[in-house]
Amino acid sequence: MEIAVIDYKGGNVQSVLFALERLGCRPTLTADPEAIRRADKIIFPGEGEAASAMRELRAQGLDVLLPTLTQPFLGVCLGMQLLGTHSEENDATMLGILPFEVKRFPALPEYKVPHMGWNTLQRLRSPLFAGLGAEDYVYFVHSYYAPVGDYTIAEAKYPAPFSAAVQHKNFYAVQFHTEKSGPVGTRILENFLKL
């Protein structure tokens, strides 16, 4: 199986590559349109700031290519937020593959921002989460979130529910770091590779 991890200088991609290698895969880190089109599975990682990530995607023509892909696609963290239409983070216009608008968590006394640490998932509704339950934790680090909508396939609470994972056709994405979420995260990656 050919797995393309999209390279757009979007922060720490090494952890995603290592997680795939631990599963016995040999992922390719690439921005080459041919290699991306040809791959069986696509992973779209991301960390950092939305507007500069979009600038880099546009500079490489990936903003045009990514929405046309048809193979199973997994966005991770910022790679999920970039699939929306717009982000409050520096007023960024995003890829628009999914209809959500990304918002900043409100500053509340008991709820620090970033939302950082291990949290549970609720209302799981996708084969991506096969074998997981209410007592399974995944690792989040983010200050912005996608609201819950028709596209939501898992929710988390901080303190209100938000989208922990979304899906539209072949485009799956998770807000948490599945590559850093212990055996639970590994299971989600394995589930994705079986799609």
Partner: peptide
């Protein structure tokens, strides 16, 4: 860091 990241599945 590289050796740790290759093995470790927590942050």
């Amino acid at each position: 860091v590289r050796d740790v990241a290759r093995e470790l599945d927590i942050p």
